[in-house]
Design a protein around this nucleic acid. Structure first.
Lengths: 224, 224
DNA sequence: ATGGTTATTTATCAAACGATAAAGAAAATA
DNA sequence: TATTTTCTTTATCGTTTGATAAATAACCAT
């Protein structure tokens, strides 16, 4: 720890944070808070976060009225700001095959969602009972899964049964999402994510196909 | 205190916990701790837990050396003790069809795992970086998913490619597990769990079937 | 009843928490 | 340079946390 400061022997008192504009400082705090709360959970102390940033703890209260306000801004930054509207529009773009649209969507979606900070904060919030998760899930359903099912019905000539997405869509989505959980929450980074996506999409389309021709073959009744 | 307390009217001071045997008391504390930590997370205070049980806070330290020790016993009680060896044996019972074995297994498995306390503690532990989750997941893989794949290969006449379960098994498992997450973590209790199980098993068997007859039909390449 | 054992409580500690007020120091203005 | 502004720190408050020691009270054996 013996850092040799050029101008004479510094008393080694404190680094002291450089003075910054309120705008820049607030952004810096927010960015570091995302990393910090993703690591420690929302019970992480403000002093630990301050040390990580290199400022003193009371400085937070110049930029955020309370810790809760900081936490809420973290939510907003992680969830709302990372939502890509291209997901929805690309899913409905008829110029490509449904399969390639799904592959492309999940490639982009998992690129955002299967990130350590995103997923951990998502579960921290869910366990804390904040309505953020339920609202996000509803948005996923209406803005992503419902279009997926509608597009599927259109591609396969099925009549859409109301707007609610078929359970098969939830299954595909769950299979992909579970991969991210294994990877980011459990720390199991074994399998390739792209392979999981390809298999989930292929299985989904295969299941829908076998829905269209009901008497394809008696599967599920074989007694080995 | 030169004053006489009214002898009749109960002072309404404190209930005072009834004296119990160490064995019984420890079990009671452990049982309540499971409920408490599932609600509050592992950062829940020992005083809150004490009030819930109806004892005073220092009494914990007669039965558990520290809070961490109590937490560890909660893990053990929730994960290890609820594991059913019948899962593994029933999955390998050839007298029933593979489909009914899978349906029966997931019915029993989700009955244990899709319980609020189990799942919440599971994720609290996972987010805290405890190795419990990784170990449990490895047990699921070796004791459940590998047998499922082996049985599947046997039923369909496939040669098992090593022991590692095919990704299709992970997909089925993930689809089912994701349902529990939506239900217990996000609070979305919309769909029926049994329907999810049936669909996941059916989709899995269908996908395996289409693996056996490769040129069944060109699925996944249709341009609507 | 009497005395010993032990389950439980009261009282208390040191540390860490979120938060506030006042002092200090860098930048901006004059 | 002198003065004002404002970003940052020091010092501190009140509360809550996990944990310990000593005092109380219930049970058991005699």
């Amino acid at each position: 720890m013996s850092q040799s400061e050029p101008p004479a022997a510094k008393p080694a008192t404190k680094p002291a944070a450089k003075r910054r504009s309120p705008e820049a400082r607030k952004q810096e705090v927010l960015a570091e808070a995302i990393l910090y709360f993703a690591d420690e959970g929302f019970d992480g102390g403000t002093r630990g976060l301050a040390k990580r940033i290199g400022i003193t703890q009371p400085l937070f209260y110049r930029y955020f009225p309370s810790k809760d306000d900081l936490v809420n801004e973290v939510y907003r930054a992680v969830y709302l700001d990372r939502w890509q509207n291209t997901w929805e529009t690309n899913l409905c773009d008829d110029s490509q095959s449904l399969e390639s649209r799904l592959l492309q969507f999940y490639h982009s979606y998992t690129g955002v969602v299967f990130e350590r900070n995103w997923l951990r904060i998502y579960f921290f919030a869910g366990l804390k009972g904040l309505d953020i998760n339920a609202r996000y899930l509803r948005r996923v359903e209406t803005a992503l899964l419902e279009p997926i099912w509608a597009q599927t019905c259109a591609a396969f000539g099925l009549e859409a049964t109301g707007k609610t997405p078929h359970d098969l869509v939830w299954q595909m989505h769950g299979a992909v999402f579970y991969h991210g959980i294994r990877q980011q929450i459990y720390g199991d980074a074994s399998v390739d994510i792209e392979a999981t996506i390809r298999l989930a999409v292929k299985t989904y389309l295969g299941a829908v196909t076998s829905m269209t021709k009901p008497a394809d073959r008696s599967l599920g009744d074989q007694h080995d």
